[in-house]
Each structure stands twice: as C-alpha cells, then as structure tokens.
Simulated scan of single mutants.
Amino acid sequence: MAYPKSRNSNNYNQDQGKRPRRPQQRNKQESDSVIGQGTTKLRKRIRDIERQLEKKKDVLPSNIKLEKQRELSTLRVELQNLQNFNKAKDLAKKYQMVRFFEKKKALRSYNQIKKEYTEMENSENVDKKELKKLRKKLTHHEIDLAYVVNFPKDKKYIALYPREDADIDMNDENVKKGTLKTDTLRNEFKKQFEQQLKEGTLKVSIEEILKGKSLRLEVPRIELAPDAPELQVQDEAEEEEEDDFFE
C-alpha cells in the first residue's frame, strides 16, 4: 500500500504538486506582486529589502546579495516612474480648467480670423496685401491654438493669456525676475510649437484640434540600465516650490 507523502516533506508540496520554491524565488514573486499596486506597497517592499541587506550584509552569499541589489534597483525605478506619473496626473488636473478656457479663447480668435481670411480669399477683388496680413494673423492664432492644446500635460502649464493681478508689485525685483522667467519660457514653447506647425509634427494637429481631439497624458519612463548605479528616489513629500507666475 502506497502512503501519501507528508505535508512537511522537504521534497514535495502536496497542494501544488511540485517542489517548494526557494527563498529567492519567493522574494522575487513578492516584488513582482507589489508592482502596479501603488507607492505604499512599493515603499514597504523596498524598506524590507534594504533591511535584509543591512542586517545580513556580512553573511549573504555574493550571488544572493547581487540579486537583492538588482531587485532593489528595479523596485526603486518602478517607484520613481509611478511617482512621476502621479505628479504628472496631478498637474494635468490642476491646470485642466485654465487650459479649457484658454482653448476656448484661442479657438474663438482663430475661427474669427479664419472666417475673415476665407471671405477675402473667395472675394472677386482680392487685396493681396490685406490677404497676406490676414494669413499672417491666422498663422499667429494657429500657433496659439497649438500651444494651448499641445503644451505637455506633465509640466506646469504656463498661461498663454496670463491674468493681470492688481496686487502684484511690478517694482519688486523678485516679481520682475519671475515674470521675465515665465515670459521667456512661454516664448520658448511658442517657438517650439511654431516650428512643429511648419514641419507638420505637432502631436495634435490644427485639423485634429478643430475636430475636438486633445493631448494625451504621456510621462517618459525611466529604464534601468544593467550597469546603472542605484537610483535614489525622491520623496513625494519633497514638493517642488510653487511658482505663481506660471498660472
């Protein structure tokens, strides 16, 4: 008569019908299971591995230690990518209404000039000089429209039509510097979108904007190179200093 193997057997797992997993296999599966589960679980797993490495650094075999370090680096990269995405999502939400109203304003101005341009272009006695001026105006409004729709959602939105604040002291040196910095950045983005408009490389073209298409939230992912040094993840509590001039 054949007897069933014990549940405590080192060579057999009755529930799964296979050999028990080695400790490093279990650890790897634990790390895989927390990926995609949010920053809290990722941080906990990172802390667990850090403690293991610190506590057993003199007794761990070199291959196990190397495996732990690689696992730790992978989790740190995953945490940084998740934090970057969460930050970008918060920025997109924060500036959603500003972008919405600026798009309406840019679209209204564009449609008005487009109508004038089309009417003059189709008239019997076309004034070429005036038509050229209107074409220039239309291009200007196309750039504005490209700006408000194509401005990266993972960055602080720099208003195309900044509001005037009567309480701001324009004689203050800090205010002057902040305003100059914002104006410079705005112009850089406008030049970028102007160039993309000419080349036809806008992520959302004017034709697509007129059809109601909007920009998707895209956040570049960090990829860990095999020989890369350990990544130091920025704490989410270390918030970037807010700059009121951007709004």
Rank of each mutant, 00 (worst) to 15 (best):
T184K: 14
I113R: 11
S33F: 08
E247F: 15
D235Q: 09
E218W: 01
D32A: 09
T139L: 12
S109K: 15
D243I: 07
K153F: 01
A106Q: 02
L107G: 09
N81E: 03
F246G: 05
E173C: 03
Y12D: 06
E188L: 12
Q83V: 00
N150S: 05
V77Q: 06
Q80A: 11
G17V: 10
K104Y: 04
D32F: 01
K5E: 15
R221N: 09
E102I: 00
G36I: 01
A146P: 05
Y95K: 04
L42I: 02
D172E: 05
S214L: 12
T201S: 11
L215N: 10
S62Y: 03
A106R: 03
R186P: 02
A2D: 14
S33L: 08
L79Q: 05
N111C: 06
I222E: 13
A92N: 05
Q196G: 03
K94R: 14
E78H: 08
Y3Q: 13
K213R: 10
N27S: 11
E119T: 02
E230C: 05
R45D: 02
T182N: 00
N174K: 13
Q24L: 15
G200R: 11
R186I: 00
E124T: 00
P20S: 05
Y147Q: 06
L42A: 02
K115S: 14
L42T: 04
S9A: 11
S214Q: 14
A2Y: 13
F245T: 01
D244F: 12
L138Q: 04
E188G: 09
K190F: 04
R19M: 12
A225W: 08
Q234M: 09
P226C: 13
L231S: 01
T118C: 02
K18H: 13
E78G: 01
R216K: 14
E124V: 07
E173P: 11
K129D: 15
N84S: 08
L66M: 13
Y117V: 07
L79S: 03
Q16A: 12
R135M: 08
P23V: 05
K137Y: 08
T139Q: 13
T118K: 12
E71H: 00
Y147S: 06
D15G: 03
K87E: 15
T201K: 09
D244T: 07
L107H: 03
K198I: 07
L215Y: 05
Q24C: 04
T179D: 13
Q16S: 14
Q195H: 11
E30T: 09
K198R: 10
G36W: 04
Q96V: 08
K105C: 02
S109T: 13
E116S: 09
R22G: 07
R47M: 06
R22A: 12
G17L: 12
